[in-house]
Design a protein around this nucleic acid. Sequence first.
DNA 1: ATAAGAATTTGATTTAGATCAAAAAAAGTA
DNA 2: TACTTTTTTTGATCTAAATCAAATTCTTAT
Lengths: 189, 189
Amino acid sequence: MIESIFNRITEEYCEISPETINDWSEKIKIVEYKKKHLLAKEGTYSRKFYFIVKGAIKAYYMLDGKNVTDWFAFENDFIPSTTNHIIGQKSTHYIELLEDSILIELDADHLEYLCKKHHDFEHLYRLVLSKTIHQLRERIASLQFRTVQQRYTSLIDLHPKIESRVPLGDIASFLGITQETLSRIRASR
Amino acid sequence: MIESIFNRITEEYCEISPETINDWSEKIKIVEYKKKHLLAKEGTYSRKFYFIVKGAIKAYYMLDGKNVTDWFAFENDFIPSTTNHIIGQKSTHYIELLEDSILIELDADHLEYLCKKHHDFEHLYRLVLSKTIHQLRERIASLQFRTVQQRYTSLIDLHPKIESRVPLGDIASFLGITQETLSRIRASR
DNA sequence: ATAAGAATTTGATTTAGATCAAAAAAAGTA
DNA sequence: TACTTTTTTTGATCTAAATCAAATTCTTAT
């Protein structure tokens, strides 16, 4: 079980030495939570870092009393929204499970420890951040000047199953539009 | 000169060992270019990584024959738009100097070498990426659900001098609006 | 200083998407 | 199975910002 997870990570990012893997695997905890469980709450300190083995999450924050969904993550993703808390600040976001999920949990202190102790771990983490940057860039390009149709289409291309796994309202929010508009776009295809 | 630059970087991010600094300073080149010079062109390989000692840049790409400005950077910023090329892909962006500038240039290969050789350098780089992520997040929040007024105001708060250093059309593009709209917003304040 | 070119502003019109409201469909729950 | 609750769709109207067009102001080079 654990090995196959480390394999997934190594394949996706880079090789990791056995020592690092050992040290790492001592620090992690495999956790299971039900749909709607909150991994983080706005205004609280939740210094945890997650990798999704199975399941899906959304990250959102409140704006004028409404939820704004910021980020989705699925199997084999790290949850980068948590990186904020890692610098020791209160969370600006809620992170909610969209499905019953299995996660690997790593304490922020342990993350720092592993980075400091093992160069290859810090390298891996650097690659994870690079990937996140790439995704954020794509997202900005999408929000900045594409029409709503184009935004929706490219989201579906990227995550074909998102429609069945994520409520329409959250997808609309992520795209920066109302759910009525998204519903109409969907209908017109 | 060089020392004061390394000091700036160390203060902003983290301590770096003398060995790393030595090795690093052997790899860099201080370059000066005039306004309008292109550090990168769409479709070409420009495997360089820059730190801005003095000056300003914009990163943009073409969409339907129009420039879309993506990113600004000023003194003491690394230019993260170049990180794309570092993975060895053709640039998707143009990077153009908005002013006569002084830059520190580091070859992508040297960047990788320094990361591999010196754990503290990779750590520094990781922190640079973290900061970039934070900025990108802010930017997404801004584009996703804020009104144009709010977007403009927060940009000015962040970079008070941007109005005098960057053409209005580029700022408008960055905010995801037309320059006519930005002009009107400015007039109505 | 003056002309040529670039950047910015102003005006009139159009349109994509928001808002408000209600109906219909789907998903949970007893 | 029926009943409640949540999610999605549909309709009518409104509005912020886009578009198109032209005028004005600011820069730069001669």
